[in-house]
Design a protein around this nucleic acid. Structure first.
Length: 626
DNA sequence: CTTAGGG
DNA sequence: CCCTAAG
């Protein structure tokens, strides 16, 4: 209730719609604009800014009172992070013991998760070491909740080894249920004028400490709920304090993480080509016993086998503005070919068979396909720029594919569009694993892999890069791809299981490391914003979606790894780590990694357990003996 | 959009 | 890897 009233008033008088519906209204953009105006570049920015304003609004912070706030509390670290001396931000850690010193209720801002980030951030800023781990968790959702939720939150895995302060807790001896203390507090909504004056002061300073690019939040206001998507300009962390600015060089070094918006878009881009799943092809019977197995094996059609993408290695920042393009091709992967050979075959015959299969496919020679943003571009005469490829976007937008020259026999089909699949002359040495598939003249699958591994966002979604593409691409494709018989998205009707791509050890390593730091599942952070002199507590809750962050942090460049994939992989990793080495299959994962998996899993599971308690106030109270 | 968990 | 409920 408290916050609802306050939010009605809005942050700084910004009107905040109450319902999801309203959230989509024009007011939303107005809100967004306002927020951007106060230079909030990240979720933490916004959080900080809002928190600051709420505090100011409520008069909960005075520079004098808050500074000695933490006086007797044995919290390990205090640092004024907000507007110099204006506010004390305390880092707290878990341990559910009660505060034994509640006299100084002025300590008004509790940050369990943010501060470590802030530390990290600052040191990060100082050292341009590109390899420095970046602990800055991204906040995917912010929940303002007037409920009595609050709780403890330990620091992330690794940091927990270092810190051992108190966790977030109520600094109030009052044993009454929180809810009762969270009643409407009329004076909170008043100081609008004060707020307006503070716009570019504290909020900005605070926010300047953090930099990520976009921000998604879910504001829960009482029962109302508002979803927002905020994004601000890349690296637009304007700040008067230069030292708090994120050096753009750093941004360049770690663009994947900083450019949140980009990440988001990329993620979304994968869905932009909705590969509609359906389980069966027309007429393909569910009872086909080998479906799973074989489908998995024949993850590519023979044609697709050579439509593989060539990963475009992201070259070191292309600084030179000359017109030469430095393009590295990292690897070329040919998905599985299935070749049937009798067990009695000799090595030599096997070689021959493989050779035959390959040469059969390559018979007509090879062609290189160029894909921009995952879409094939056929017009050889177009300049790169015309196609929307600039030096900057090169590695982001470009990929190649290797494809056989279309057999003359099938030429009449004029396979111009990448969506179009011509019948393919399957070498008889290749075995179709889906019997029924062979009967269908138009499996209409193939190019899936192109889209699937599409290197980048679709047109128009990537604010930074898309400009060049927007005006050009639609007509370009219309003509270049020569969409002959604009075959309806029939392909999307077909079940196209994504190609199986086992995680490499390197990927596992990255995943493990990311999870070690970020954790799994979601994390609830509660910020205590203010405690009034009559014991009312205002706080803010944030959800951090960690799988999403793991994805962004460690796999942002692996477009084919979704956070669900990562989550699944983690699941199997945990499983793998638990079974005996003999039972494991696939590329062996180093035991060391598996051990770390178990450790991290144990740790984060435990964390989540605690978290659950936090989300269930009753239990919390019970567990705390309240 | 994300997580969680079964398939 | 897929699917989907749930929030």
């Amino acid at each position: 209730m408290v916050l609802q009233t306050r939010l009605e008033y809005g942050f700084n008088g910004y009107e905040v719609p109450h319902t999801p519906r309203a959230a989509r209204s024009p007011r939303k953009s107005a809100f967004k604009k306002k927020i951007e105006n106060i230079q909030t570049s990240s979720s933490f920015d916004l959080l900080a800014a809002v928190a600051g304003k709420l505090l100011l609004e409520s008069g909960g912070v005075s520079s004098s009172s808050s500074n000695n706030a933490s006086g007797d509390n044995n919290v390990d670290k205090k640092e004024p992070v907000y507007g110099g001396d204006e506010m004390v931000v305390e880092e707290t850690n878990s341990d559910h013991h009660h505060d034994n010193n509640n006299n100084n209720v002025e300590r008004s801002f509790f940050v369990s998760e943010i501060l470590p980030k802030a530390h990290e951030m600052e040191s990060f800023n100082r050292s341009p070491n590109p390899n420095k781990d970046f602990l800055f968790g991204s906040t995917s959702g912010i929940t303002f909740d007037s409920s009595e939720k609050f709780g403890t939150q330990e620091l992330p895995y690794e940091e927990a080894k270092i810190h051992n302060g108190d966790c977030f807790r109520s600094h109030n001896n009052d044993k009454k249920p929180m809810l009762e203390r969270l009643n409407y507090e009329p004076e909170l909504s008043r100081n609008k004028d004060l707020l307006n004056g503070m716009d570019n002061e504290d909020g900005e300073n605070f926010s300047a400490r953090y930099a990520t690019k976009s921000f998604r939040s879910t504001l829960r206001v009482g029962d109302g709920r508002v979803k927002k998507v905020l994004s601000s300009k890349y690296c637009k962390v304007s700040s008067k304090q230069k030292d708090t600015m994120v050096p753009s060089t750093d941004l360049n070094l770690k663009p994947g993480y900083y450019s949140k918006s980009h990440c988001l878009k990329s993620l979304r881009s994968e869905k932009k080509f909705p590969i509609k799943k359906r389980r069966y092809f027309d007429g393909y019977i569910a009872s086909q016993p080998e479906e799973t197995v074989k489908n998995e094996g024949l993850s590519v059609s023979p044609r697709k086998a050579f439509l593989s993408t060539i990963a475009c290695q992201k070259q070191p920042p292309i600084q030179s503005r000359d017109s030469h393009v430095k393009l590295g091709i990292k690897s070329f992967k040919v998905p599985e070919l299935f070749i049937e050979v009798p067990e009695t075959a000799t090595i030599g015959s096997l070689k021959r068979t493989v050779l035959e299969a390959v040469t059969t496919i390559l018979e007509g020679g090879l062609r290189i396909g160029v894909l921009v943003h995952g879409k094939k571009v056929r017009d050889d005469k177009k300049m790169l720029l015309e196609t929307g490829i600039s030096l900057d976007t090169l590695s982001d937008t470009l990929s190649f594919c290797l494809e056989p020259n279309p057999p003359q026999s099938t030429k009449p089909f004029s396979p111009k569009d990448s969506d179009f699949v011509r019948p393919y002359n399957v070498p008889h040495t290749l075995t179709r694993c889906l019997p029924s598939l062979g009967k269908h003249a138009k499996p209409s699958d193939s190019v899936e892999s192109d889209l699937d591994s599409k290197p980048s966002a679709p047109f128009g979604v990537k604010p930074v890069y898309s400009r060049a593409l927007i005006p050009i691409s639609p007509p370009l494709h219309a003509q270049a791809l020569n969409v002959v018989p604009p075959r309806k998205p029939k392909r999307s009707e077909v079940a196209q299981r994504r190609i199986r791509r086992p995680f490499s050890v390197a990927e596992v390593e990255a995943l493990v490391q990311a999870v070690e730091r970020l954790g799994t599942g979601r994390l609830l952070i509660c910020l205590m914003l203010h405690q009034t002199n009559i014991g009312q507590i205002i706080f803010m809750c944030i959800f951090i979606f960690r799988w999403r962050d793991v994805k962004l942090r460690a796999f942002d460049n692996a477009k084919h790894r979704t956070y669900v994939d990562l989550k699944d992989k983690w699941k199997t990793l945990v499983h793998t780590a638990r079974i005996s080495p003999q039972q494991r299959r696939g590329e062996p994962v180093p035991q060391e990694l598996l051990d770390r998996v178990l450790m991290a899993h144990a740790y984060w599971s435990q964390q989540q357990g605690k978290q659950q308690l936090l989300e269930a106030p009753h239990k919390l109270e019970t567990s705390l003996g309240l």
